[in-house]
Simulated scan of single mutants.
Amino acid sequence: MKKFQVVVKCSLGIHARPAAQIAQACSNLRAAVTLETDHETAQGNNVLEILNLHAAKGATVTVTVDGPDEEEAAQKIQAVFEAMGPKEKKVPVLKVAFFGTKDYDRLY
């Protein structure tokens, strides 16, 4: 049995997309994966249970892996949590100007 902790770095916490990525990573493993927060427990291959963890940004999730491919499973799950982290990319800004001659347009 392998047990480790990860901190949720995603600004939205574990929402639908990260939960699906975790479940997808766990579905191809022979090891049983369990995720725990302070108040909830979830099976690694069940998206709805992972969402029910309500793990917000900064929450600590304890991951337990038990089975024949523990090391591979632990590495895959840690990789998924690392990929969830914030991305450093520039977002282009779109500037829009509105012009109007009506009285109600001048208010805005």
Rank of each mutant, 00 (worst) to 15 (best):
V47P: 03
Y108V: 12
N46I: 06
P68D: 05
F81L: 01
V96L: 08
A42T: 01
V8H: 07
C26I: 05
R106A: 08
V65I: 15
Q21F: 07
V47F: 05
K89M: 10
T34I: 10
D105K: 10
F98E: 08
Y104H: 13
I14Q: 03
L48D: 07
L107M: 12
V93S: 10
H15G: 06
M1H: 07
D69Y: 00
Q5D: 15
R30W: 07
L48T: 06
E82K: 14
Q78I: 06
P68A: 08
C26Q: 02
E70A: 06
H54T: 12
P68M: 06
Y104N: 11
V61C: 08
G85H: 07
V6G: 06
P86K: 15
L51S: 03
V7D: 09
I22N: 02
L51H: 03
G100H: 11
V8W: 08
A73D: 00
A20C: 08
L29M: 13
A73R: 00
V91S: 09
C10P: 06
A23M: 04
E88C: 10
A16S: 14
T64S: 11
A59P: 06
A16L: 13
A19T: 03
A19C: 07
G85I: 06
P68T: 00
C26A: 09
E71M: 11
C26H: 03
L51I: 03
T62G: 05
A74Y: 01
A16M: 13
S27D: 07
K95C: 07
V63G: 00
T62A: 08
A97D: 10
C10Y: 14
K89T: 09
L35P: 04
L51C: 02
A31C: 14
A19I: 05
D38P: 05
G58C: 10
G44K: 02
G13C: 08
V7N: 12
V93G: 04
G58H: 09
D38Q: 14
E72Q: 13
I50Y: 03
A59D: 10
S11H: 14
K57I: 12
P86M: 14
L53Y: 01
A32K: 06
I22C: 05
A56C: 14
A31D: 01
K87G: 07
H15Q: 12
D38T: 11
T41W: 09
V80Y: 03
V63S: 00
V33D: 00
V65K: 02
I14Y: 04
P18G: 04
R30N: 15
A73S: 09
A56N: 14
K3P: 01
E82I: 05
E70G: 02
R30D: 13
E88T: 13
P18N: 05
C26R: 01
D66R: 05
T64A: 10
D69A: 04
G58N: 08
